[in-house]
Write a protein that binds this DNA or RNA. Structure first.
Lengths: 323, 323
DNA sequence: TTGTAGGCGTTATCAT
DNA sequence: ATGATAACGCCTACAA
């Protein structure tokens, strides 16, 4: 067996509790005994057993982030934001991309969880959430006293994109939607439909394309669309930048020019967007800021603060060459 | 308090052990009792306490990946590879980017760990590694019976890059190194120095630049270099693609052309490399494959297999417009 | 200042 | 087929 506190205590010639106190910096322990214990622990390469410790304390000092996968350039910045804040408050962050068991979450191996994973069913979340285990969902609407929401104001973004295109003289605007699993994708789509109707744009139903957030899908979808329709909108909004990239590639390949023939607006402002040719006009989502806000909120909740705060991550239109 | 197994047992009118067996699918339990227990558990929204369970079983069914941060486009693909394999074997993966405590690792909350984080000291790793806790390091050489290595064959990559440039007629080749913390960065640098000498290239000491892996640092470094030296190499190798990107930006800004005046080779083949203008010639590291191999190795080790396997992730030169 | 002992929620052994 | 009970390793009253 591995070395336990008992081993350390024995080697240091003290009781286990003394060893425990010493290791945990309890003030009552004499300096000399603490030295002895530390020395013994060091000698044995002792590390406490987290399971035992956390079981006893019923606390893990650990916050979980549950995402659906590591694909795509979107997560990095969000992760950075969360990470920074979490560790600066003495917690640690674990990131899990499970799509079935989510044991880290269900078995309460974390003290709080941030959810951005459509694979996890809302019903499950409801059975997991509690006073001792607050949840913040980034990807759905859900009603529960211990589940907090931190959703992106996608409709604002769409509004800005449409406004921008309108200012540029576009009337006939298409849309490239992502997969239906995605909350953000679907809210972007419905915001689009909403404003299109409200502002009497001339968009045809057939100009609302369905892809799956990947560059390849954006390419394929646009390619097929252009092959099958001789009439095309003068502008497209894509539900993310990667699809915008793919669409632009397809448009260029069909001998059309961006933005002269078709303008394209992306969404998210991933790093690559500014480096492409043409660089992509996009709705920037301040992902790092979002992450920071979410993490702060979680820490506050954990601290017992009344965290009914409504997060408002910034969205702004970044104009570049594709429009 | 949260609902425990005892609560479930009570509601189902059975003993705790029976409840435990029922929930864990033990064959000895009568179908009708199992139903009762399941029903009760469901009703109470019961989820086992992972800490208690793992403590008792001394097993977590969990593998940890410890990285230094989420910045940079490098990790995603590696993560994907690891994730896929790990979950397909019934384990879960947790990703931690801690830079100080690493409690998930030290407190044995995982059954094995993959290390790609220069913040974690080798001494610590040695005290943590054991039969019950194998480690695979991706970022250092370290000697310990339970620490396995899965290092990138960086010298092969450098060799290919130099060969490519030599074939293109280059004799005077500079290098842009990353931060000294990085194992891969430093081995790339020393491989470069080694082959430069061996093949009698005319590289001057001053043409070995030091940046820190970011695009910005590549830009700054190259900018300063070109301002201060009227003589410059006809080609540069960068220790990663982002610095290559930055360098190219600086070179263009100084009114020189890539590749005519200065050719640039990157390293890693991050997604963006192919989309830039000029697209970047680079040494492709099959990161996903690397991740898969590492994960397979870990699972084998955990299974008790003799895993002295030497991993050989592929590296190949991808020729594009920057050379 | 230090030691003894009970309990955190499970699993697993051993009776029944 | 089921139920009592002893660990797992740690923390923390409470005693000494």
């Amino acid at each position: 067996m591995l070395t336990t506190l008992k081993d350390v205590a024995k080697l240091a010639n003290v009781g286990v509790s003394t060893a425990s106190y010493a290791l945990n910096g309890n003030k009552l322990i004499k300096e000399s005994t603490r030295k002895k214990v530390l020395q013994a622990a060091n000698e044995l390469g002792y590390h406490p057993n987290g399971n035992a410790k956390n079981l006893k304390r019923s606390k893990n000092d650990m916050i979980g982030l549950f995402i659906s996968g590591f694909t795509g350039p979107f997560f990095n910045q969000l992760l950075e934001g969360i990470q920074d804040v979490v560790v600066s408050h003495g917690y640690e962050l674990v990131v899990c991309a499970s799509n079935e068991r989510h044991r880290m979450l269900t078995e309460r191996l974390v003290d709080g969880a941030i959810i951005l994973n459509y694979h996890i069913e809302s019903e499950l979340l409801k059975t997991v959430a509690s006073e001792k285990m607050p949840l913040i969902v980034l990807d759905r609407e859900i009603d529960h006293p211990h589940i907090y929401k931190a959703l992106l104001p996608n409709d604002k973004g769409i509004k800005q994109a449409l406004k921008h295109l309108e200012d540029k003289g576009h009337k006939d605007i298409g849309f490239i939607a992502g997969s239906t699993d995605s909350y953000d994708g679907e809210t972007r789509l419905s915001a689009f439909k909403h404003y299109i109707k409200e502002h009497n744009f001339t968009t045809e139903q057939s100009a609302i394309l369905r892809a799956d957030f990947t560059e390849a899908s954006g390419y394929e979808t646009m390619k097929t669309f252009l092959k099958n329709n001789h009439h095309y909108p003068t502008a497209f909004i894509a539900a993310n930048d990667e699809m915008a990239m793919g669409a632009i590639r397809a448009i260029k390949e069909e001998g059309l020019s961006v933005p002269t023939d078709i303008a394209v607006v992306g969404f998210d402002d991933i790093i690559i967007a500014q480096y492409l040719q043409p660089s992509i006009t996009t709705v920037r989502v301040h992902k790092k800021q979002w992450g920071e806000q979410v993490a702060e909120a979680m820490l506050n909740i954990l601290k017992g603060a009344n965290a009914d705060l409504i997060l408002q991550p910034t969205m702004e239109l970044i104009e570049r060459e594709s429009t």
